[in-house]
Design a protein around this nucleic acid. Structure first.
Lengths: 335, 335
DNA sequence: TGACGTCATCGATGCGCTTCGACGAATGCA
DNA sequence: TGCATTCGTCGAAGCGCATCGATGACGTCA
C-alpha cells in the first residue's frame, strides 16, 4: 500500500506537508505543491479512508436508509437513490445503503461506529419509531417524508397536501363534479406512511372547497384489484367522470381495465396520475400528472445534509410545490 | 465517544482483553467475559470502524456497482440490491453504493483507499472496460453478468443461453412452429450487455434444433414501440403464434397493444416472458415465465465474495439454470 | 517438590493519517 | 541595521483499535 510517507519521501518533504497539500489547510509554495502532486500521481496514492476517519473524525460517507420492498414505489425509490448518490459524489461523499428492515438498531450502529457522518432516511412514517433515536444521534439527519413530530430533524418531501388539492382543482376547473381517488395500497395506509394521508387530506379539502363530490379507495396493484376498486367506486358514485390515481404501480393495470370496459380516456373518464414524470408517456394516452420529483428530493436531501455537516445547524422542513402537467388524459366531461 | 479504553476501565481489565472478548481470538474466562460484555452494553460501546479498519486492514464493507439508469430493469436491479444488502448484513458487512457512471476510476479509488474489502459489479458488458482494472485490483471481485474474458474474476448470472432455449422448447412442445422474440431495447444491445446476446443465441439455437421458424426484434418500452415492433414482426412472418418477451419493461404496453388489436392470449398468441417471478401475476392473464432470479443472484454474489474474503481463492463462474413456470399465457396454437 | 505446560491477561507497538505548535527564512517597517 | 511579521515547512502527538510477545497463576506429572 502506498502511504503518505511514501509520497513524502518521493517528494522530499515531510508527511505533514503532503497532508497540507491535499487538504489545502495551510499555504504551500507552488514548487512543493507541484513536487508533491507529481509524486501522488506517479505513485497512485490514495489516502487510507480508515486512517483518515480515525484522525479527522470524518468518514465522507452518508448512510441512506431505503425501504427495499420490491412491491412498492420501485421506480421512485430508484430515481431517488440514483440522484442521491450522484449528489453525494458531487460533494465528495460515498453512500452506504441501509434497509428499513434493519430498524433503529442499524442507525445506532452506523452512527456510533463512525461508519457514516450523517443519515438520510426515506419512507418516514407519521409516528416513526426511528425519530426519537435519530434525534439522540448527534449526527445530521435528513428525513424524506414528514413525520408528525419532526422535532429537531430536517426533512424534505413533495407537498402532498398541495398535490392532492392540485389534482382536484384541475379536474374541477375542467368541469368535473364527481371524482374519485385511487390511492396507495392498504398496506401503505396501515404503515402510517404520511404522504398517503396528506394527499388524501389535500384531495378532500379541495373537493369540499370546490363543491365537488369526491370519494376514495385504496388499491393494490394487481389487475384484479384495479378492477374491483373501479367497481366499488362506480357502485358508490355512478356519475364519476374524473379519476385521480395516487398509485404508480396500478396505473398500467388500471388503464387496461378501463379499456377492456370500453371506457375511453379522456372521453369517458379523465385521469390525473401522481407519478414520476418519466412514467407519463409509457401509456396509450399520455397522462396528465402531478410529478413526483424524486430526483429533486434526492439531490436536495443530500445538499441539506452536507450543509449541516458544514456547520449550518438549523433544522429545516422543505416541502416542494407540486407541478401539474396537463397532457392527453384529462378533458372536460361529456355534457 | 465510547472507546475500548472506557470499556476496559469499566470492566477493570486491559483494552486488549476487551478486544479479545469481542473478536474471540483468544480464550477468555467466563467471568471476565461477562464483566466486559456488561460494560459494553452499559456504555453502548461500538468499535470505531475507522480505527478498526486501520488496525486490521478490514473494513467490513462491500462495494456494489449498480447501473442506476432509471429506464431499465428497475425492478430487477432493486430486487438484486435488496437481497445483496440483506445477505451482506448476514455476513456482518455493509454495502457501499457506486454507480456505473462513475466508471473505472471509482473502483480504483474505493479499492486503493481501503473503503471496501471487495467489489460486486453489476451489468457487466461483453467487453467491459472495467474488467482489466478489476483484475489488477488485488481485491475480491464478483461480476453479475459474464464478460467475454472473465480471466481470473468470479462471476454469476442466470444462464441466459439456456433460458432462451427453454422458452423456445416450451413453445415448440406446445406445437408452435412460428415464433418471435421481443428483446431488450436497442440501447442494451448497443452497450454490448452480454445477457441480451446470450439469450438470443439460446433462442436461435433451440429454434434451429426444433425446426421452428424464429425471428427477433429489439424493442423500447413505450406503447408506440411495442406497437411498431409487433407490426414489424407480423409483416416479416405473418403466421406467428408464439411470442417470447425478453424485456420486462415493455410487457404492460405489449399486452395492451395485443388486447387493443383484438388478439387474445393465449388464444391467438402464446406469450412467454422473461421477468421476475413477482411480475407474472400483475397482468390480465398470468404469464408463463422464465424467472429472473435476482434475489438468488444477489445472495450468491455476496456469498461468493465473502468466501473469497475468507481465503477461498479460486475464481468461479456460476450460471444459474433457468426455471420455466407455465401459467395461463401459453397454450397450443389454433389448428 | 521442582520442572513444565496451559490458560488468562497485560502492555507495548504500530496501522496511516490530521493537526498543532515550533522554527527558520524571507519580508516589512522604522 | 534591527526587530516584528508572515510564510512555508517540519516533527511529534494522538486518533481507537488489533495483535504479538511476555508474564503470572495454576495445575500436572514425575
Amino acid at each position: 500500500m502506498v502511504t503518505i510517507n511514501d509520497v513524502a519521501n518521493a517528494a522530499g518533504v515531510a508527511p505533514s506537508t503532503v497532508s497540507y497539500v491535499i487538504s489545502g489547510k495551510r499555504s504551500i509554495s507552488p514548487k512543493t505543491r507541484r513536487l508533491v502532486e507529481e509524486s501522488i500521481r506517479k505513485l497512485g496514492y490514495h489516502p487510507h479512508a480508515g486512517a483518515r476517519a480515525l484522525a479527522s473524525s470524518k468518514t465522507n460517507v452518508l448512510a441512506l436508509v431505503v425501504p427495499l420492498r420490491t412491491d412498492l414505489n420501485v421506480a421512485v425509490v430508484m430515481q431517488f437513490v440514483a440522484s442521491a448518490v450522484t449528489a453525494a459524489r458531487a460533494h465528495d461523499h460515498d453512500l452506504l445503503l441501509l434497509t428499513k428492515d434493519e430498524g433503529p438498531a442499524a442507525l445506532q450502529r452506523v452512527a456510533s461506529s463512525a461508519i457514516a457522518d450523517a443519515l438520510i432516511v426515506m419512507d418516514v412514517e407519521a409516528a416513526d419509531p426511528r425519530v426519537p433515536m435519530l434525534l439522540a444521534l448527534d449526527r445530521p439527519v435528513v428525513l424524506i417524508g414528514v413525520p408528525d413530530h419532526p422535532a429537531g430533524l430536517s426533512s424534505i418531501d413533495l407537498d402532498f397536501t398541495a398535490a392532492g388539492s392540485a389534482c382536484v382543482a384541475h379536474l374541477a376547473r375542467l368541469g368535473h363534479r364527481r371524482i374519485a381517488l385511487i390511492g396507495p395500497s392498504p398496506a401503505v395506509y396501515r404503515r402510517g406512511t404520511s404522504y398517503a394521508t396528506r394527499f388524501l387530506d389535500g384531495f378532500d379539502d379541495a373537493a369540499r372547497r370546490a363543491g365537488v363530490r369526491a370519494i376514495s379507495r385504496s388499491c393494490n396493484h394487481s389487475y384484479e384489484a384495479a378492477s374491483h376498486t373501479l367497481d366499488d367506486l362506480f357502485a358508490e358514485e355512478p356519475g364519476i367522470t374524473g379519476l385521480v390515481v395516487h398509485n404508480e404501480a396500478v396505473l398500467p393495470a388500471l388503464l387496461s381495465v378501463l379499456r377492456n370496459r370500453g371506457l375511453t380516456v379522456p372521453g369517458d373518464l379523465s385521469v390525473v396520475a401522481v407519478c414520476p414524470e418519466a412514467m407519463a408517456d409509457q401509456h396509450v394516452v399520455a397522462l396528465t400528472t402531478v410529478a413526483i420529483p424524486a430526483e429533486e428530493v434526492g439531490k436536495q436531501a443530500v445538499e441539506m445534509v452536507v450543509q449541516r455537516l458544514n456547520g449550518h445547524n438549523t433544522p429545516e422542513v422543505r416541502l416542494l410545490s407540486p407541478r401539474l402537467t396537463e397532457r392527453e388524459s384529462t378533458a372536460a366531461p361529456h355534457a
